[in-house]
Amino acid sequence: MTEVLRIEGLCKSFDALEVLRGIDLSVLKGEVVVLIGASGSGKSTMLRCVNFMELPSGGRVHFEGEPVGTLRGNDMVYDERALIRLRARVGMVFQHFNLFAHMTALENVMEGPRTVLKLDPATCRARGEKYLDKVGLGWKADAYPAMLSGGQQQRVAIARALAMAPTVMLFDEATSALDPELVGEVLETMKSLAEEGMTMLIVTHELGFVCAVADRVLFRSEGRILEQGTPADVLTHPQQPATKSILRGHGTFRPLEPNLD
């Protein structure tokens, strides 16, 4: 399996606040890696360092086998044009969808191919329709974001990222802002992507989804990776006190198994 992403000793500080303190991670093609951990443990920051929405303060990132940035003395120097090319290869889905409010669903999905890849209009349209169909929203092509439910908006946002034909997809708490009844449709969309072999790096609190979809779970705490393994290992046999505490929190109140027949 080819390695899509390799992170070595990744550090990130905001002024005096150290959010990431040396993260190592390798992601293979087609792998679904999930980051869990307490709020403020730097999960989002780590994701944002992968597509350089935040510049790391230390460490190295290799993307598709190529190192990103060049070492000059003790400092990494990042060329903005190289980062722009990298971002075009990495899809990102945000907690708050961030759809372009003045564009229809279809126009949102066409925007990347059009402005960034500079494809011709017919190709952009075909791509837009293809990916909107893929997330089951072809029938909403002409709707503006304000006319869509949160779940639909997030699926359009997923289609928008997919239309760039990315190598890896980043999901930053993609369902955290959704009403409970809308979470399922977005998770379904993500699951079908995973089944098609998309490489995915996911931050989420949906542990049920993690069990069903993740190849590997990383538990993060205080800027480090505390524990990692298959969902069965980490979620059912946690070793570290911090992991146990988080999982205990999740399990404090369990719903009864509903009979839906």
Partner: peptide
Amino acid sequence: EAGRALGMT
């Protein structure tokens, strides 16, 4: 950010 993440300048 959404534009930036798509690779826009």
